[in-house]
Every structure is written in structure tokens, then in C-alpha cells.
């Protein structure tokens, strides 16, 4: 039983991390009023570019940086379309996802060949934390994880504080809730939206890199498989708060982790219903939040000055 719990928790943290990381990014752009369904495609690009970077440089850290930069670059295109050209955010995000689906496959085959990537790359290894790792259950699950897992867990409360207490955080919230009022106080709505989107792009790249180099050690076509959409769900279920994203990510991750265990143990409950759970929870949460939602008033609406 102890072994079961330890394994369950360890895999929960591992599965949750990319969802939390990307969720912590898009929660900011969502708060600034931009619907970011392109995160799925950005993660896919990040997953590939991380592997490419790690393979080329021999360093998982540099690989991750390259993944993040790629995320920023493609986010820039998305921002140009949605903020500068005031294009429909949903469609632009979808376009990015379709593009990324093709782009990553083409790049992967060109670099690693049709057979797939057999190249050995540097990946995220577990970094057990001294002393703490000795604690029963938690030590082997929570405190013996790769670096990004710790980052995701620690970043959430810090980003919560940043969003609620810092000057840029205040601007971001104001821009999503009432861009006209922000404009009347001399805040540049486009600048704020660009910044949050670029940051979200970096986080999506990071999350993607963790999928390909933290959970496994290779890139496979379409490997993100809806994690970007699930992060969107985590943002909604977490009511547009970074800490909420963390909680939602852990809940979703545990559902998936549990599912693997049920599948292995031949439980009578079909594991697919556990996989559905995150999405059903999110829809129910939307019904319950109703009026109390933190969804910005101007979510999805391009801003026209004057």
C-alpha cells in the first residue's frame, strides 16, 4: 500500500507538471483578455525543439531554453495576429495548432529521419532533495523529482503573488477586465497583451520540453495529445488563478495517474471515465462559478482604441 501510494503520487506530480507549467503561462494571457488555445501547438513545438536543442548542444538546460525561445517566437506571430491585426483569437490559435502539427513532423523527419529519433539526448534526471527525500512516501514521490516539477510547484504561489500584488500584475488584470479604463490611465493595452503572450509562449515551450525530456526521452509526432487544451481547462477550473491552476493541474494529473494504475490492476471501473473526469469537472465548475468567475470581462475581445 505504501509502495502503491508512493508510485501514485510520484507519477501524479510527473504528469501534472507540464499542465501546470503551461497553465501558469496562459493564466496570465487569459487574464489580459486573450484566449490562448494555441498553447497546444506551442507545446508541441517546444517538445520538438527541446529535443533538437538537447541533441545539438548536449545539454538539457540549453535544449529547454531553445524550446522556450521557439515558444516565444511562435507566440510573437500569434500576438501579431491577435493583438496588432485584431484577428479572431480562437481561429488564430487553431491555425497555430494545425501549423505546429505539420511543422513538428516535418522538422522531426528532416532532422532525425523517418525511422524516428533514436538519438541519445540529455534529459531531465531526478534531483532528490537531501534530507527531505528520506521522509516516507513524500520523500520518494515529491522530493525525488526532476527540476521542472519543483519549479512548477514553487512558481505557482509566487506567480499568484505576482499577479495579485505587483504593478505589472495589476495592469494585466485591468487590461482584461476593462481595457478602456486602463487606456485612460496611460497603460498600453497592446504592450501588456504582447508581454503576457510572449511569456505564455515561453512557458508552453518549457512545458513541451518537459513532456519530451522529462516524462520520456524522445520526440514523437503529436505527443502533446491535448495537454494544451487540458491546461486551458485547468485555468478555467482553477478560476484564472495561478494557485488554482496548480490545484487543478494536480487533480487532473491524479486522475490520469490513477487511470494507469486501474488499467494495470484490472479494476472494474473503466479507466476512460477517469480520463473524462477533468473535462467534466471543468464544465461543472463553469456552471457553478457562473457569476463568481474570474474570467475577464473582455476575454476574447480585440481592443480598438478610440
Amino acid at each position: 500500500m505504501i509502495q502503491w501510494t508512493t508510485n501514485f503520487l510520484a507519477s501524479t506530480f510527473l504528469i501534472s507538471t507540464p499542465i501546470i507549467l503551461v497553465g501558469l503561462g496562459i493564466v496570465f494571457s487569459e487574464r489580459a483578455g486573450v484566449i490562448n488555445i494555441g498553447a497546444e501547438g506551442l507545446m508541441l513545438i517546444g517538445a520538438l525543439m527541446g529535443v533538437v536543442g538537447s541533441w545539438a548542444t548536449g545539454s538539457v538546460i540549453l535544449g529547454t531554453l531553445i524550446a522556450m525561445l521557439s515558444g516565444v517566437f511562435f507566440s510573437l506571430i500569434f500576438a501579431y495576429l491577435t493583438v496588432s491585426l485584431r484577428a479572431n483569437q480562437v481561429v488564430a490559435g487553431l491555425a497555430l495548432n494545425i501549423f505546429a502539427g505539420g511543422f513538428t513532423v516535418v522538422m522531426n523527419r528532416l532532422i532525425f529521419g523517418v525511422a524516428g529519433n533514436a538519438a541519445k539526448i540529455d534529459v531531465f534526471n531526478t534531483v532528490p532533495i537531501p534530507v527531505l527525500k528520506e521522509i516516507p512516501i513524500v520523500g520518494a514521490s515529491l522530493f525525488s523529482q526532476p527540476l521542472p516539477v519543483y519549479i512548477a510547484l514553487i512558481a505557482a504561489p509566487l506567480l499568484q503573488f505576482y499577479l495579485m500584488r505587483s504593478n505589472p500584475g495589476l495592469k494585466i488584470r485591468a487590461v482584461g477586465e476593462n481595457p478602456k479604463a486602463a487606456d485612460s490611465l496611460g497603460i498600453s493595452v497592446p504592450a501588456v497583451r504582447y508581454m503576457t503572450l510572449l511569456y505564455a509562449g515561453a512557458m508552453a515551450g518549457f512545458a513541451g520540453a518537459f513532456v519530451s525530456m522529462g516524462q520520456v526521452s524522445f520526440f514523437s509526432e503529436g505527443m502533446i495529445a491535448g495537454k494544451g487544451y487540458m491546461a486551458l481547462a485547468a485555468v478555467v477550473f482553477g478560476n484564472y488563478n495561478p494557485v488554482g491552476v496548480l490545484m487543478a493541474g494536480l487533480v487532473f494529473g491524479s486522475a490520469e495517474s490513477l487511470q494507469y494504475r486501474l488499467q494495470a490492476s484490472g479494476s472494474p471501473i473503466p479507466y476512460q471515465f477517469l480520463l473524462m473526469l477533468p473535462y467534466i469537472i471543468t464544465v461543472l465548475a463553469l456552471c457553478v462559478y457562473h457569476k463568481k468567475t474570474n474570467r475577464p470581462a473582455y476575454s476574447g475581445q480585440p481592443y480598438h482604441k478610440g
Partner: peptide, 24 residues
């Protein structure tokens, strides 16, 4: 690689949705 067509589809969609570009 056949996946080039998805790249193409994505870019077509970006141009369609960004048609303000042509207006500008």
C-alpha cells in the same frame, strides 16, 4: 514529408484570419 500540408493549412488559416493585414 506529407505533414507539410498541415503547415500549409495552418498558414492559410493564419492569412485568412489575419486579413486585416491586407487591409493595412
Amino acid at each position: 514529408p506529407n505533414a507539410v500540408v498541415y503547415m500549409l493549412q495552418g498558414i492559410i488559416l493564419m492569412f485568412v484570419v489575419g486579413q486585416e493585414m491586407f487591409n493595412l
